[in-house]
Design a protein around this nucleic acid. Sequence first.
RNA 1: GGGGGAGUUCCCGAGUUGGCCAAAGGGGGCAGACUGUAAAUCUGUUGUCGACGACUUCAGUGGUUCGAAUCCGCUCUCCCCCA
Length: 408
Amino acid sequence: MTKNVYDMLKERDFVAQVTHEEEVRDYLSKKGATFYIGFDPTADSLHAGHLVQIMVMRHLQQAGLRPIALMGEGTGHIGDPSDRTDMRSVMSPETIRHNVDCFVHQMSRLLDFSEDGVILENNAKWLLSLNYVDFIRDVGPHFTVNRMLAADCYRQRMERGLSFLEFNYMIMQAYDFLMLFRMRGCRLQVGGDDQWSNIIAGSELIRKKDKEAAWGLTFRLLTTSTGEKMGKTASGALWLDERKCSVYDFYQYWRNVDDADVGTCMRMLTLLPLEEIISYERLEGAAINDAKRRLALEVTTLVHGRDKAEQADEAARKAFSGSGDSAAIPTCPISEEERGNTYIDVLAEHGLMPSKSAARRLIQQGGLYVDDRQVTDLFETLSDDVFDKGEVVIRLGKKRHVKLTSSF
RNA sequence: GGGGGAGUUCCCGAGUUGGCCAAAGGGGGCAGACUGUAAAUCUGUUGUCGACGACUUCAGUGGUUCGAAUCCGCUCUCCCCCA
């Protein structure tokens, strides 16, 4: 047995479940063998979770396989109930369309869509024009409601309620797999572990309808060592779009992961050689910070490019240890009219704090610093440095740094 | 279609003999201590504001009352049982 990509994925902690280990392993050793991963256009930007999927694609492509990135424009009209307790809100066709466009745009920077690269597909192509009766007569007989209800992905919805619309999601995804098998000879679907039920539904459909072999492989969801989903910030998902999450904040997210999670993140989200990762994993105590810094730099580079990643790294050094270039620290433009306003007003006004009350609390609790000087006076007004020097760096709490700049 | 139950602050969830409720408790968030820009732990805080007081909240709306999250009418939403 020679070492192949499958083993590599295992070594890097990706693999969660496989339908048929030997066959899949064998399939993955074939040059040009096709596999697909689906992307649900639920937002106008990819987020940290998608990064895992993208890395898997890159690794497999590197190994000579043919990846298909399937945009779920069609399935987006239904909404995947997997792994969630609440009902998805129904999105308008325009929104879904727009989200797909955003995904494709972002992915073009992360994946190789060239001639021999990743194939882009969109299930709107075959799903939206389906005729209901024809469709259920075609695939319906191959599913039993009994089994579907027993599926893991629906279980947690049994209490809260699962609409018939959402219930159909699994069948749609199974149909996608069938279509890609017929159109592209794709015999393997890969996805997050929450997709397991949907994936096996597809491989079974191919077996039943076309009497052909098809397999599924899921990779671990990005979770913390305590089981919580990673890639969540206070305000929601960790977006890859710079406009929704600054490069600096993105960098800081990874710089701040728990000690216990650094290794896994490195394995799954960077292209560093395994040996190097293992040596990082051996670090202990404060030295782990070196690993985190490397992790942040690598992941940020992947998403935003080397230059921006290095700027973020510089800015972080400046913010936390005084030396470095503060260029990448998030800025907040202050207008001339604000000269003389209190910090409470300024912080609330620019959304740096959710309300004046919150800003007031921050100061009362000693969490506001201006140029490393703690603000103790509740009514202290904006430093003139903002206008005279053009900028002043303030710190909110232990970790948030913001550069106030004059905007004229 | 018939019968029953429920809708509370970011979430879960107390509170319904009307005042002591801006509303228990937990989670989460935020700030501080300790540290390594980690975890765990501890402390404080967590509606808004011109702030030891004032104002707006307990699905919506209209009432009863000196006074309502708590009582009554209507509306909306959700759940459950029967059909």
